[in-house]
Each structure stands twice: as structure tokens, then as C-alpha cells.
Nucleic acid binder design. Structure first.
Lengths: 335, 335
DNA sequence: TGTTAGCACTCTCTTCTTTCGATTGCTAAA
DNA sequence: TTTAGCAATCGAAAGAAGAGAGTGCTAACA
């Protein structure tokens, strides 16, 4: 059922106000600050109606109103203002992405840092699963008398490199050939195909150990925890709704453990995912994540995790701006 | 001034009790639980004396006594029982270190996890600075048409590898030679010598860019944040002394930021470092760290950060046990 | 019919007071 | 030197009172 224009304006006023102050707002305050053309009594009537519809609640009978998860949902879908970043906020983004970044890992970490710095919320950033990457090249290099480094390149140019102990008598030429052989065998295959054993072969005896080592390396990457960078987890304590120690503890316990965090973050592959309240699995929380195209390096995800009462507009602008900054980064890299 | 045996026993009772309960202890409680052969009045006299000496304080006049930082110092240096780990605690260590670990990074992370799990405290683990490492070998491998991977091996066998963009026309042979040239130039030198510009040379024109790239890579590692793994930061909230929101916030802000954390952790190169109170720079805190020999991989550091009132005995046992477990790990690796 | 003013009612939050209990230091006796 | 006894001190918990904020409802008004 659609809300009247006036109800929408009042609801937006409640949400805007609550996002700013985290205090229940009264009918007279709405009148003063947002809708001076209405009387408080009229607003009160509308508030009671919005409460019936499930958009508002009262902490107790003689207090103002507070938005419900449904209200935030309507707010982000329809009512929210679309703001631009300020000059100084853009400056912060540039500060992090203006210089050359060493590798994907550093991009992910910088992304998390800049988001947390601008939004003052806890931020997360992680790369998508690599299991569907396709292998393009394998090189093996002897770096010490008994140690070789395996370099596995995929279509997302994610380089997985791991050392393995090898027999001392094998020389550079041998590993060069072994790398070429491995490339011929695995190139064009997905990592998941290889680890699931679908790529079998009449492996030359002499390369059997190399073959096994590569499979072992790929498997080890497959089972390793999704690597999520969390930045600014202490900022959750700045939020009034987590002033309660029990809530703060529950929240931090999740942020602390990648195992708990991953299922909470995991989302459909949308450009922008906003989960509010129930959808998150943690009370009073919301998560906003955006997927970020890293060009050849794959697809990353970044966002914030905070109270339902967050500045969605700002958060979304920041994610958008960072997406663009990283796009520009990629171009620079090609020069 | 040395304490009498009786004073020592009473002080130990106060510390033991406070570590367990985080409650001020009264003279009568000491009598009941620790020293039934004395009267509470006698204990009271001794407590007053210990307070004069700076080992105890009273939160307020009608409460029991609480140990000061000096008391904990004396406790760990002299009074503390040396306990062994229980069978199940050793089991936890084995769970983490029984299997093969992929690389140093994984060893560091596992170390932090196991310490936090057993002690129920926030743990930290990090590798020593690499600036004093000596370079032993440099290899350069072309992995894509315009991308080369630089592999720099040091005496601690820490392998620093980074990609760089290169001209398409250069071939494998070129990079092979370039690697040999770089090795001849840099082998035996400390990273800090190289980045400070002490190694200058009549670089062949043709390798100038390679030379510059290697210096850039080494510099980038030099300035990058010390990489500290923190595990279980939310556990700090389980400690009663951090039930105060302000204190919790201050603590978590430090744990959140590697920049703030590193100076707090940094210690003389001791096998075991115990900082208590003032020495830490954060009130009511203590830090226990041990350096762990990782064989060829270098020297790591691991420990806990928590309230002064921590179970030092248990913490030290855990660090000791983990040191041994990692020693055993190294042996396995060589097979 | 929608809007508004007025007002009684409800409930929280703060402050003040009181009481209760824990623990000490001191004194005097053993 | 140790111990029993006791007045004194202070914090924590419980209770009481008052102020203030905000609502819902009623009745009047456009």
C-alpha cells in the first residue's frame, strides 16, 4: 500500500532525524525542524497511523518515535536523498588511491581503510572466491638448493605462489620444462575442475611429483578462509546503540571471526546490496556492500557494517566514489 | 628491601585471588581461603604494611585490597607458580600445529589463534622487521606478456615477490640474465643498506630499470606497516576491568590500528618480555610476548595483551608450549 | 472531513535520602 | 607479637519524590 505524500515526508523526517541523533523524535520536534506548515497534532495523527502500519515504534508511551527496519527499507528504496561527497571526502579517497598500490591485497586493505575513515563505521573488503578462475600459466623456479617456487597465474591475474621442497639434483632446465608441461596440462581449466579431480591425465612419470604439488597448492587455496579485511571495528563502539556492553560484545565477536562474518556478508552478486535488520542476522544492524570491478584482478566486494541507523546516503556515495577511483587506478596501471 | 616469607605468602594470596575473581579481597577472606593458620587481624596488619610499601591499594577505605603493578611485577618475577598445560590445552595446540602449514603467514595466524583460544585473551603475533635481512638471491620471471615477477630471497628465506610491468619485447633470457646481475650486485647486502642508497654502482644501462624496480620493491616493504596479526580482540570485553565503555574503546582503538599497536609491542630482543602497567603505556594493561625461533624463516614474536590481572602462569606456559610446537614443525618441514 | 488547540495521563529520568553491609584501623588484652 | 572486639567509614542498593517530555483523546473550528 502506497503512502500519502505527507506520510512519506513525515517518515523521512523521522528517519533523517534518527540517523542524525539516535534519539526518538516527537511530533513537535518534527514540526519545528522539518514540517512547520503542519501542526503537531496533525503530525501526531500521522505518526499513530505510521505506527499502525509498522514503520514506527515508541520505546515507551511518553517518548517520541523510532523507525523500524521496514522504515529504513522504504527510506533507502525511495525516500533517501542522493548526496555527493564533499571535496574533503573526495580528497581522502584520492589520498589512498592516488599513489601506486603494490598488489591486490593492498588495494583491498586501502579500500577498507578509506571507507572506514570517511564513514566512521566499521568497513569490510574481500575478494570473490577464486575457485572459478581459469589458469593461464604456470611457472616453477628454483630459488634455493632444495626449494622451488610455484607461480600459478589465472585469468584474473591473481598469482598464487607457494614454495615446495624439491630434490637437490633437479636443475633450472628441469623446472622450466615442468612448468611448460604443467601449463599445457592445466591452462584453460578452472581451479575447481582441477581440484575436484576432473583433470586426470597420463602424467609422465618424471613430472608426477610436480603435478601432485600443484594440485596440493590449489587445494590449499580452496579451503583457506575467505580472507576478509575488517577495518575500524572499534568504531562500532562510537555508535550509541552499541553502548550496551552485551550488544557490543556480540557485534565484536562477529567482526573478530572471519568464519562468523563471511556468511553474514555473503550476498547475491549485486552491484549494491543493502541488508537491514532481520536480513543481516544481527539485531539493529545493517550492511551495505558494493561489488567493485578490479579489471583483470577479479571482482572485489567492499562495504560497511553498522547500526541500522547509518547514513546510507553517504555510505553509498562513498562506495560509488571508490569504485570509480579503483577503475581509474586500473587504467593507470596499464600505462 | 626483601619481604618476609609471611608477607610474600599474603601478597601471593592477594594476587592469586584477584587474578581469579577481579574482586578486592578482605583480610578474613585471605584467612579462610589461603592462610587459615593466621588471624584476620594479623593479616590486616600485614596488609597495611604491604600497602605502605606500594604493593597494594584499597579502592576505598571499607573495601579489600587490590594489587598494584609493583605487586604483579614481584609476582611474575618471584611468587608465581609455574604450571603445566593440561592435556586438553596441549590438544588445542596440536590441533593447530599438527597439520602442514602453507607458509610463514599461516604459522603466524595459527599462532595468534591458538594463543587466544587457550588463554581467552587477545593475542598478537608478528614477524621481526626484515630490514636487517641479507639478500641471497634474486630471480626475475616473466609471467605474462608485459608483467614480470621479482623474487627476492634473503638469509631468513623470507621471499618478497612483487610484479612489475615491463616492456613486451624483453624475453626470458633477458630476465634470467638480469636476475643474475642483480644477485651479483645485491647478494650479501642488508636490505637497509640497499634502500639507504649505500649500494651504488656503475649499473649497465640496459639493467637500469630492473635495478630501480628492485630498489622500489625493497623500499615498499620497508615502509609498509609492520604486519601484526591480532586475534580475539573482542575477548577484551570479557574482562571485568574493561566493562567500562571508555576503557574498552581506548583499548580496542589500539588493537584496531597497527600503527598504535606496534610501538606498544616493540620490545628488547628478549626470549620473554613482560610489561606491566606503566611499562605498557595503557592503564591496567599487561603484555606478555615471547620471541619464537622459526628456523630459516626468521624470528617471530607472539604473545597476549590483556589486563594486568591475567593468568601469567598460564600465558607463559602456552607461549612456551607453542614455541616447542613450532620448533617441531620446522623439523617436519625439512623432511 | 480534515486540522488544530488544550489537557489529562503515563512513563522515564534524575536526584535525594536512607539503609544495609562490608571492611578497616585502633585499642587493649593475651 | 598476635589476637579479639568494636567504633568508624564508605560504597552500593533500594526507595521516594518530583520534574519533564510526549502522547492520545476530546472538542472546536475551517
Amino acid at each position: 500500500m502506497a503512502l500519502s505524500g505527507r506520510k512519506e515526508r513525515i517518515l523521512k523526517a523521522v528517519v533523517d532525524s534518527y540517523i542524525e541523533s539516535c534519539e526518538p523524535i516527537s511530533s513537535s520536534e518534527i514540526r519545528e525542524k522539518y514540517l512547520p506548515e503542519l501542526s503537531s497534532a496533525t503530525i501526531r495523527n500521522e505518526l499513530a497511523s505510521l505506527e499502525d502500519m509498522g514503520y514506527l515504534v515508541q520505546p515507551h508511551v511518553s517518548s517520541g518515535r523510532v523507525p523500524t527496519a521496514d522504515a529504513y527499507r522504504l527510506y533507502v528504496d525511495k525516500l533517501m536523498p542522493r548526496r555527493k561527497l564533499t571535496r574533503s571526502e573526495i580528497g581522502v579517497v584520492k589520498k589512498y588511491f592516488g599513489r601506486k598500490l603494490k598488489d591486490i591485497d593492498e588495494v583491498v586493505k586501502s579500500t577498507a581503510k578509506v571507507i572506514s575513515e570517511i564513514t566512521n563505521l566499521t568497513s569490510v573488503a574481500y575478494m570473490d572466491d577464486i575457485r572459478d578462475d581459469v589458469i593461464t600459466n604456470i611457472k616453477i623456479v628454483k630459488i634455493m638448493p632444495t626449494v622451488a617456487l610455484f607461480i600459478i597465474v589465472t585469468d584474473h591475474s591473481i598469482i598464487k605462489d607457494t614454495t615446495a621442497n624439491v630434490a637437490e639434483e633437479l636443475d633450472d632446465v628441469y623446472f622450466d620444462d615442468a612448468g611448460k608441461f604443467a601449463t599445457s596440462l592445466f591452462a584453460g581449466k578452472r581451479i575447481s575442475e582441477i581440484t575436484s579431480g576432473k583433470v586426470v591425465s597420463d602424467v609422465h612419470r618424471e613430472y608426477k611429483r610436480i603435478f601432485d604439488a600443484i594440485i596440493a597448492i590449489l587445494k590449499s587455496y580452496e579451503v583457506s578462509d575467505a580472507d576478509i579485511t575488517v577495518e575500524g571495528s572499534s568504531k562500532i563502539l562510537d555508535q550509541p546503540e552499541f553502548n550496551d556492553l552485551e550488544k557490543a560484545r556480540a557485534m565484536l565477536a562477529v567482526l573478530d571471526s572471519k568464519e562468523k562474518l563471511y556468511p553474514v556478508l555473503k550476498s547475491g552478486n549485486m552491484d549494491l546490496t543493502i541488508k537491514i535488520g532481520e536480513e543481516v542476522g544481527m539485531p539493529d544492524c545493517a550492511i551495505v556492500t558494493a561489488s567493485i570491478d578490479l579489471g583483470e584482478a577479479g571482482v572485489g566486494n567492499a562495504g560497511v557494517i553498522g547500526p541500522m541507523r547509518m547514513d546510507y546516503s553517504k555510505v553509498i556515495s562513498v562506495l560509488d566514489c571508490i569504485g570509480k577511483a579503483i577503475g581509474a587506478l586500473d587504467k593507470d596501471d596499464d600505462n
